[in-house]
Design a protein around this nucleic acid. Structure first.
Length: 448
RNA sequence: GGCCCUGUCAUCUAACGGUUAGGAUACUGCCCUCUCAAGGCAGGUAUACGGGUUCGAUUCCCGUCAGGGCUACCA
């Protein structure tokens, strides 16, 4: 696998965009064997362009550059080439070039002889197009820089690329590439075009239009597991055909075939802006991530969570993290959720909460006070072990003549600072007697 | 405008021309339950439309419509 940066467009080739691409690829950990930058291989590209020119299959076009976004509403029909330039004599062409006139080098696409350009695509099948429908595309710009079409063909040939797997937006460009490969006398690689990933609005993903949700690093920073993200991506436009969804990288590799790829574009169902950060992402991606999180061992998950917790400023040690992890494993969908799901394990002082939360279902302040006072006694003398806590607190509920749930809720809110939290006894065990009692004490003060 | 590609639930997708059109996500309800999750069960929504071919079309062919891509020195 070759990582090649197609960076022949000087304007768009910024440090920031390259960094972002590298960071994303590094995170995905796909791995590659060789690495190249097209901008460092210009001589090779130019050599191929002029070889094609020498054979008469390219010509100089001295027409001033035309901006790409000209109106194509149709009135002017299809542009194929600039009359006069295509048939300029070699002598005249050389003379003008010698005089320093700027020019682009264009491919001389065969015309008027009914020639057909064809290739076989591993996904879209046999493709054919009349050469008469292909414009005389540029090989070199007037500043001498190669175009994408030329540079990529020259590099594909030089690097002996076997398979080109790319977006379907290049399907029609491939006819041009087939022409270049033929003119250069090299064999074309195998082509496989993939359906596009499109935004909910149906257009292909673009940073300009759709913002950070289309950047790989956004998923990394939000707490996706790289393997889950890859899994999700694989399921867009492809499926193992046996209803499996959650798959490890090795399983994906085993099941994957180019022939199994669909031809229709797939919508990445993101919402931007979204009410909450989590709702930004495709719900299926989030679900898959949760599945992958749950399939990680406690040790593995704990190790992945630790740096996130520390970076957020909680001074937590690996042993503590290991104890907390099983309590939140089934409650987080993104790794970063650890910060909101387990924060109360890490802080000394609970953030403030509404004291009314301490009042149990169908209860009142008096009941909450009774519960907490009784809990203070029970927790003061019971060993902090799951089963013992369970027995002692249930017995206490019975003595008070209330339901177990009414007993547990005030305690949960007192020690966690909120109603929704992991199971109570496990939580108390991890928190320990000292912290638990201190928080119950604070809760009592809040209520009075 | 021209050329190319595509069209199965809201979304991702299954279905050698013969299935009550399957699965998943999301959603709703129930169960489980100390809350929240997780898990289990149940439920609703799809073959764009019109013609063919065929005993029979989601599946093959044609047209229409819709969407996407490319289209004079972006990739």
């Amino acid at each position: 696998m070759v990582l090649r940066l197609d960076d022949t467009d000087v304007e768009r080739n910024t440090e920031a965009s390259v960094t972002s691409i590298f960071e994303g690829l590094k995170w995905l950990d796909l791995g590659w064997d060789e690495e190249y930058k097209q901008s460092e291989r210009l001589a090779l590209h130019q050599k191929m362009a002029w070889a094609i020119f020498d054979q008469g299959q390219a010509y100089r076009d001295f027409t001033p550059a035309h901006t790409g976004d000209a109106d194509r509403s149709g009135a002017q029909g299809t542009w194929l080439f600039n009359p006069g330039m295509r048939e300029l004599s070699r002598e005249e062409s050389d003379r003008r070039a010698g005089a320093g006139a700027p020019f682009a080098l264009r491919f001389r696409v065969p015309r008027g002889i009914g020639q057909e350009v064809r290739f076989s695509d591993a996904v879209y099948g046999e493709q054919r197009k009349a050469a008469d429908d292909i414009e005389d595309f540029a090989l070199l710009r007037s500043d001498g820089m190669p175009t994408y079409h030329l540079a990529s063909c020259a590099d594909d040939a030089d690097l002996r690329i076997s398979h080109i797997i790319r977006g379907q937006d290049h399907l029609t460009n491939t006819f041009k590439h087939v022409l270049i490969f033929a003119a250069a006398g090299v064999q074309a690689p195998q082509f496989a075009h993939l359906p596009l990933l499109v935004a909910p609005d149906g257009t292909k993903l673009s940073k300009r239009r759709h913002g950070p949700v289309v950047s790989v690093t956004t998923y990394r920073d939000a707490g996706f597991l790289a393997e889950a993200f890859i899994n999700f991506l694989c399921l867009l436009g492809w499926s193992p055909k046996n209803d499996r969804e959650q798959m490890a990288l090795a399983e994906l590799q085993d099941a994957f075939t180019l022939e199994g790829i669909n031809r229709a574009n797939a919508v990445v169902n993101f919402k931007d802006p979204a009410p909450t950060p989590e709702e930004t992402f495709d719900p299926k991606a989030v679900w898959l991530n949760a599945e992958h999180i749950r399939s990680l061992s406690v040790e593995e998950l704990s190790a992945r969570l630790l740096p996130i917790v520390r970076e957020a400023g909680f001074p937590v040690d690996p042993a503590k993290m290991l104890k907390v992890t099983p309590l939140i494993r089934e409650r987080i969908k993104l790794l970063r959720d650890v910060l909101t799901a387990a924060d109360f394990f890490f802080v000394d002082q609970l953030p403030s909460y509404d004291p009314l939360e301490l009042i149990p279902q169908k209860g009142d302040v008096a009941m909450a006070l009774n519960v907490l006072k009784r809990a203070r006694e029970v927790l003061g003398e019971t060993e902090f072990k799951h089963d013992l806590l369970d027995q002692a607190l249930r017995a206490a509920a019975q003595e008070l003549g209330i339901k177990a749930g009414q007993m547990f809720q005030p305690i949960r809110v007192a020690v966690c600072g909120r109603k929704n939290a992991p199971p109570l006894f496990e939580t108390l065990e991890v928190l320990g007697r000292e912290t638990s009692l201190a928080r119950i004490e604070q809760a009592l003060e809040k209520l009075q």
